[in-house]
């Protein structure tokens, strides 16, 4: 590949970065569409912890898309903190959901309980689990892009 010309080698790296950021954006877009589908089509009310995860998720759809055109690796600087915080909340939510953290200690006394079970795909994929997996993949990709960028 690199033999094609002197311009090919520098062009290869940005492409991989672009694909990684595109994948990151795709995760946020699918997750956003999914969460809106759950609440507006299936009529599940989001609990408090879900709202915090959404707060960290929704802006990423726009922020990451902005970083794709034109490719701007610095978008990781803005996206990574959001993704990390969302990942932490999702992790906490799973602990509450699994009963590791007592229900009393979590802030969901009003409205919908955060342990309310709506969906259980294949016996283990609950909504909080889907969120955590999404945030994990997203944070991983963003960290990879960050590592690849020249210091």
């Amino acid at each position: 590949m690199s033999r094609a010309g002197s311009g090919a080698s520098p062009a290869e790296k940005p492409d991989l970065d672009w694909i990684l950021l595109f994948a990151a954006w795709l995760i946020t877009a699918v997750a956003t569409a999914g969460s809106l589908f759950f609440s507006y089509v299936m009529g599940f009310a989001p609990c408090v912890l879900c709202w915090y995860q959404r707060i960290f998720l929704f802006p990423l759809v726009i922020v990451l898309a902005r970083g794709l055109f034109p490719l701007d690796r610095a978008v990781v600087r803005y996206a990574l903190p959001l993704a990390t915080l969302g990942w932490l909340v999702a992790g906490y939510h799973n602990l509450v959901y699994a009963g590791v953290v007592p229900d009393r200690l979590q802030p969901c006394t009003q409205g919908v309980s955060c342990t309310e079970e709506y969906v259980e795909l294949f016996g283990f994929l609950s909504i909080p689990m889907l969120s955590w997996l999404g945030f994990t993949a997203l944070t991983g990709i963003l960290l990879a892009v960050h590592r690849r960028s020249p210091k």
Binding site: F22, A29, A33, L36, F69
Partner: peptide
């Protein structure tokens, strides 16, 4: 090309949702 990929993905997501 990239732009098209982005636009097509958006369309697929919207259509899938609908």
């Amino acid at each position: 090309m990239k732009r098209n990929l982005f636009i097509v993905t958006c369309l697929i997501l919207i259509l899938g949702f609908w």
